[in-house]
Each structure stands twice: as structure tokens, then as C-alpha cells.
Nucleic acid binder design. Structure first.
Lengths: 350, 350
DNA sequence: TTGAAAGCGGTACCAT
DNA sequence: ATGGTACCGCTTTCAA
């Protein structure tokens, strides 16, 4: 049906083996034959059969990227960066090393995470990048750890991005604890005393780490008495931020600042504050986390921790492709930058 | 190295053929053997070899999804919806029909679009979903059309989503012209006379269609004299919206409304207006397009055309999987809903 | 430098 | 209902 290697070989009057060598380019071939083969490839519009190639070579050029939610720009930026690292231009038939990124949206579900890992194992993926905080249920964590080991054992490189280190893999860890701590410390320095916190789902590592940083800052300032009461958990989405804010205002109408566990939540926080007649930042300061392109518009924050998502994605991609040496200890820490916009600092009322 | 079908067959004391039948589930097998095989699969932690399977069956369970920019929520929503349509839960070893969505970010580049199509052809993808407006350069359009035909010829189903119909494929077309027309008509009805328009890149079909709708509405109201002067082109991103707005204000400082070709642009429009001291919507109304989750926060629009992106993605997925019958004529029109928020209507000054 | 041929791991047709 | 067995298209020794 479709054009095969044999067809090309016949037209170029060489053996299939030679064509294969020309295309993979990792074997010496006479220049004259080489051009002859390439011409045949061109004339026949030959396109390599990926599955056959993967079967014979025991590895495919697929790279899996697991994200919580593909519609969330946070993951979109990382995934896009990973993918951009894969694509060497010039998509001729030759396997110029171009990899294909398979982006899988787990919706935060541990089951789907495992399902996708299995699917990628089935595809004999060259590498897998796992992004986003991990679920903390012990059994699922163990299942994931096992899967990761299986993948690694079958030659799939595994890169963890923004989640706790695991055996048989490299990790790019975000400094969530430190970033969150500096964020709240900054608010405290400005004089805020009643600070609300809108956290993510409690069973995620990212959620816990950011919350720990926040609490550490409060404790250091002796403000941890009300901490628990002024913390509300939700999902990492806008509606949760909205609802959580209403709840916070119910618990303490005199808050002067609200820290959102991420920018998407901060969006909802702002909307709720506006709907309750609070001006931002004159009445209440809002602080965010992450590095979303629209956050500057939507979150007129007093202060923000900007995570270098794009760079992190690029590095994750390089690690996945083995283009970058393993970090010492297998873990590289990625720090967020504290962005304080003093001009929008609100007058603390506390 | 890895566990193979033969291993499972041996352990279950059946032939490889039987194991294959049990796993694909599309052939009668005695219940007793069936359970025996499944147990062996379980005990051996067998995972099908995708490439081998794809080679033998001459089709893979990969579905390609091409988007302009994975970090743009517009495409994220569509891609996520397509993917959710692929994943039947229960990721056991059996090929329960679960497909793997390969999301490819072209960055709007025609070359990369072609490259990814080739890559997907190489993978023998089961289907390909092309989203986003097409480039209008004749040669590229022809190249894409050819590629699509090649793909279709080799058994890959092709679905076009939000782009002009093509041979050998089904199309889900957004009613950009109609939506944009109704948007501007609404502004005109409210009394606006000086309406600016921030368009996307001029070589995209989406851009042209939306602009045509806008111009048609202006022409119908006899307002098309200044239309060209009050139209600025840019990219579909925030910075372009910002810059374009500054340019518009330079050309006519008395605009009472600005229509943005999409919500991302609208974000930039709002930012620029604020930076220039204009209040929204009291001084200037901003209108958007699309259906981004944060647009309600970021774009306090007078009016918006809400495209049902999620539903469109779902339908695209169904069409790609052949779960939905082809629409009559191969083209299904998806209309956007006009969302007018009367309460935020500004007083037209014109 | 090039060719011949043995797999790689399933699938599906043909028997039984 | 099950087994035997040619392929599927490419990669990679091993020879020449």
C-alpha cells in the first residue's frame, strides 16, 4: 500500500540495509549512493514507518509529558517548552532525532496518571516527563514509583518536574516552600497582620509545601495563632479561589491580605473581593505564585513569586533527551523570584 | 528483555494467537481460557508492545492534535476536550480502545505544521485533528492539502477544527464571520460610532473572517469610512493587543469602543487602556471573542462572543474516533453565543 | 562500503 | 474455540 523501504531500495538500486543506514545517518555510506538514495526517497515521497522502526530498534521517538490540566497555562507553558526542545526543524524523512511530545492531561487523577504511564510504556516512549505536584496517598505514590522504575528499566528516561524525587529518575524541583515563605514574609514586613491563605487540594505535595512556607513565615512573626482559621483549601482553579475568598471574608472580614497558592486561584480571589466591594490593593492585597502571562493583568498583586516555567520546561526537555548532564544528586532546585511591586502596597489596617 | 506475548501464552498454556484475541477482545474466547490468560497477564505484568501491534495491525492508537500554541488556553481547552474523549478509563493491558492524544504546538508556523503532519504520518496515527486558523499563503495551503490527502489515503482520519474545509476530511467550522458581525452590530446598536478593531495576523483565515464580520456590521451602519484607519493587526497575544491599542489611541483618542479579535488580545487592550488612564467600561468598552476562563475577570466587556470550545473539542474527538457520523456535506458549523452584559454598557460619547 | 538474512512482537488468516 | 504460521517494515549483526 504505502511506500516502503524496499521500494526506495529498489529505485535507488541498493539494498534495504543501505537505505536504512542513509536515513539514520549513523553509519558511513558512500556519498554517491547517499544522494541516489535520498533522491529516491524524495521522488517516492517516502515516509518512514514509525512503528516498524520502533519495533526493530526497540525504542520509539515518542516523549510523554504528563500534566494536571492542559487547559491551565501553567502546564501549557511547561509542556510547550518541553516540546520546543524536542523539535529540531527540517522534518525530512531522515530521523534527524526529532522527537514527538505526547502531552497527557491527567486532570489530577492518580488513576489516569498511572493509565498514561502504562500507555507510554506500551509505546516504548523514549522518555517521560512528569509535571505537577504528586498525590500523597501512600498506595498511589508507591504505584507511581513502581511504574517509574519499570519505565526506567525498559530504557525510558524519566524526568520529574515540580514533584518529589523518586528512584531511577532525575528531578527538577521547584522551591515551593522557600518561595511561599518569602512571599508571606514580605507581607509581614509591610505590616500585614491578618493574612488569609487560599491553598490547593490538601493531598498534593505542592499544596503542602507552599502552605508550610506560608506557615513558617507566620510562625516566625508570631502570627500563627489564627493561621489555621485563615487557611481554606480548594482546587487549583478560579472557582475555588472565589469560594474560598468568600469563606475567608466570612471568617474574618478585616483581612488586609490574601495569599493565593497560585495565580489561577488568585484570579478567583480578586473576583470575589471585587464582588464583595473590596478594592485591590487599597483594601486588600492579593499575592500570587507562578508565572502566568495574564497574572499581571488579573492579579494586581502586592507581591508575587515568579517561577521560571519556560526555562524549567526547556531544562526538563533537555534532561529527557539526555542533552543535559544529570544534576548532582539527581535533583536540581528551581527557585522562584520574589517580585514586589511596592507602588501597589496597600495601607495595612491591622 | 521485556515480557512478551509469547511469555504470557506459555504461562497460560495457550497459543499466542489466543492471548492476542483475549487482549483485543474482538473475538470469541472461552471464558475459562480468558481468565487464565488474564491472570497470566497480571502475574507477568505484561504490557502490550505498541509499535509491534501497530506494525502488524497497520494502525496505531495515536491521535495527533495540532494547535497553534499549547500555552494559549484557547487551544488548551480544545486539546483537553479532544483528549478527554480519547481516554476510556481502566488502563489494563487490553487495548480497550484507549487512544493516546499527541498534542503538537506549531507556534503558528506553516513549516512546523507540515513537519508535525509528517511526523504523525510516520507514526501511522489513527487520526489527526487540525485546529486554529489556516495560513493563507497559497503554496503552504496546497502543501497542507496534499499532506491531508496523503494521510487520509493511508487510513488516517482527518478532522479540521476552526479552519476552512479541505478534501478527504471532516470540518468543524467556527462561525467567525457571523459572530464578529453580531458583536459589532451590538455595539452599534448601543450607540457606539467610533469603534477600533484589533485584528490578528492578516495571513490567517480566522483573522480575515472575523474582520470581515466586523466590517460588514460597520458598513451596514454606514460607519465604514474610518474602518481601515481604526483597524490594527498584530498577533493573537497580549503584547500585540497592548501595542495595537496604543496605536489606536494615537489614531483616534476619542474611541468609545474597541473590539479585540480574541480574548488574549483583549487582555492587552485592557492593560493599555488602563495605562492610558481610560476606565473600562465607563470610558471605553472592550469586546472580546472566544471563551477563556479568565476573560470574565480580565475583560469587563460590554459584550462577548462565547465560542463553545469544550464542546467543539469533544465533537472533534468523536469525529476523529469515528464515534460520530460525518456531518452533512462534511462541514458542521459551530456558532458562538453573543453574551451582552447590559449593566456594563458605557455611555457612548460620539 | 554494501548486501543477505535473522529477528523485533504482534495480528489475522487458515486450519483443525 | 483454539493453534499454526505467514507476514508487517525496519534494524542490525555477519559476511563479502
Amino acid at each position: 500500500m504505502a511506500v516502503t523501504l524496499a521500494d526506495v531500495a529498489a529505485r535507488a538500486r541498493v539494498s534495504a540495509a543501505t537505505v536504512s543506514r542513509v536515513l539514520s545517518g549513523n553509519y558511513p555510506v558512500a556519498e554517491s549512493t547517499r544522494t541516489r538514495v535520498l533522491r529516491a526517497v524524495d521522488e517516492l515521497e517516502y515516509v518512514v514507518n514509525g512503528p516498524a522502526s520502533a519495533l526493530a530498534a526497540a525504542t520509539s521517538d515518542l516523549v510523554g509529558v504528563l500534566v494536571n490540566d492542559i487547559a491551565d497555562p501553567f502546564f501549557g507553558i511547561i509542556a510547550g517548552a518541553v516540546q520546543s526542545e524536542m523539535g529540531a526543524p527540517g522534518g525530512g524523512p531522515g530521523r534527524g532525532g526529532e522527537k514527538l511530545a505526547v502531552i497527557c492531561s491527567t486532570g489530577g487523577s492518580p488513576e489516569r496518571e498511572l493509565m498514561y504511564l502504562t500507555l507510554l510504556q506500551r509505546q516504548r516512549a523514549a522518555a517521560v516527563v512528569l509535571t505537577g505536584g504528586a498525590a500523597e496517598q501512600p498506595d498511589h505514590a508507591a504505584a507511581v514509583a513502581t511504574k517509574v522504575s519499570r519505565l526506567a528499566a525498559s530504557g525510558t528516561r524519566v524526568v520529574l518536574c515540580g514533584r518529589p524525587p523518586l528512584e531511577d529518575s532525575v528531578t527538577l524541583a521547584f522551591d515551593n516552600r522557600g518561595g511561599a515563605r518569602r512571599l508571606t514574609e514580605h507581607l509581614v514586613t509591610l505590616g500585614h497582620r491578618r493574612i488569609g491563605y487560599v491553598a490547593g487540594p490538601s493531598e498534593r505535595t505542592t499544596t503542602r509545601h507552599r502552605l508550610e512556607g506560608h506557615l513558617a513565615a507566620l510562625a516566625a512573626a508570631g502570627l500563627d495563632e489564627d493561621a489555621e482559621r485563615l487557611t481554606v483549601h480548594g482546587l487549583y482553579d478560579r472557582p475555588s479561589g472565589y469560594d474560598a475568598t468568600l469563606e475567608l471574608l466570612r471568617r474574618d472580614g478585616d483581612l488586609t491580605a490574601i495569599v493565593a497558592a497560585n495565580d489561577t486561584i488568585a484570579l478567583g480571589v480578586c473576583a470575589a473581593l471585587r464582588d464583595r466591594g473590596r478594592r485591590i490593593p487599597e483594601d486588600v492585597s492579593v499575592a500570587g505564585f507562578d508565572d502566568l502571562p495574564f497574572s499581571a493583568d488579573a492579579v494586581p498583586s502586592l507581591t508575587t513569586v515568579r517561577l521560571p516555567l519556560h526555562e524549567a520546561g526547556i531544562r526538563a526537555g533537555r534532561l529527557a533527551l539526555g542533552r543535559e548532564p544529570q544534576p548532582p544528586g539527581g535533583v536540581a532546585m528551581v527557585r522562584g523570584e520574589l517580585m514586589a511591586r511596592a507602588s501597589t502596597a496597600p495601607p495595612p489596617r491591622g
